[in-house]
């Protein structure tokens, strides 16, 4: 038997990336800005979505794809909070969403009726990063309650994100969160991504955040 070497040089997750590319063109053709929200369990992902829906209620139609290991609590919350449309994905134990799951969920949502679609990933700072979903914006959400060392402990997601939102700012006096250190380590990993500080509890910073989002919608339309 003879052996030979075949050059491959392909990403192992290429099959996911191909489906993600299909999703991306569907979002773009429908004019819906897709945002993949990645953050720890309980960091405040659904709360951010709810605040955004409220802040933009007469301006933007917002849909949500909710990814959870099980259950549909968050989907009910965003529908009650005024989401135009929402669908639940249950990953059945999987620690992250994959493009094929989002493709399936997209069949149950009228993208043409939406300006913005949030995809709330499974609460996790590691795995979701490797599976592109076809989003226009990868958003990393971190709350002050998780500690200022999250960028250096989970550097990859902070390096790969298009925007970083620091939430639960109202709790800053109650936790040891050194903002200077947080900013320094974050900038070493990602010098350019905008960083927005908010509190979903008090509404602080929500205007700035939703303004940024509206700008992104406008830029998307132009390009």
């Amino acid at each position: 038997m003879s052996t030979r070497t075949i050059k491959v040089i392909k990403d192992i997750l290429e099959s996911n990336d191909l489906i993600a590319a299909e999703n991306r063109s569907k979002f773009e053709n429908a004019g819906a800005l897709a945002i993949n929200i990645i953050g720890s369990p309980g960091s405040g992902k659904t709360s951010l979505i709810l605040q955004t829906i409220k802040a933009l209620q007469h301006k933007k139609k917002i849909g949500v794809i909710e990814g959870d290991v099980a259950g549909d609590i968050d989907t009910k919350r965003v529908l009650a909070g005024g989401a135009e449309d929402a669908v639940q994905i249950n990953t059945g134990g999987n620690c992250h969403l994959e493009a094929r799951m989002v493709r399936q969920a997209m069949q149950n949502i009228n993208l043409n009726a939406l300006d913005i679609i949030f995809i709330e990933n499974v609460g996790n700072l590691i795995c979701p990063n490797h599976w592109s979903l076809g989003e226009a914006i990868k958003l990393c959400l971190i709350s002050v309650a998780e500690g200022d060392d999250k960028p250096i402990k989970y550097p990859e997601i902070f390096a790969a994100s298009d925007v970083i939102v620091l939430t639960k700012n109202d709790l800053i006096a109650h936790v040891d969160f050194n903002k200077e250190f947080f900013y320094e380590s974050l900038r070493a990993l990602n010098p350019t991504a905008p960083l927005l500080e908010i509190s979903s509890r008090t509404g602080d910073g929500i205007q700035g955040w939703s303004g940024w989002l509206v700008d992104q919608c406008a830029q998307k339309r132009k390009s």
Binding site: M1, T5, I6, K7, I9, K10, I12, E156, A159, A160
Partner: peptide, 17 residues
Amino acid sequence: MIGRGDELRVESIEVMD
């Protein structure tokens, strides 16, 4: 940062005929 170290890549395969 100059390298993410996030590769997940197949470089080559050695096959038998």
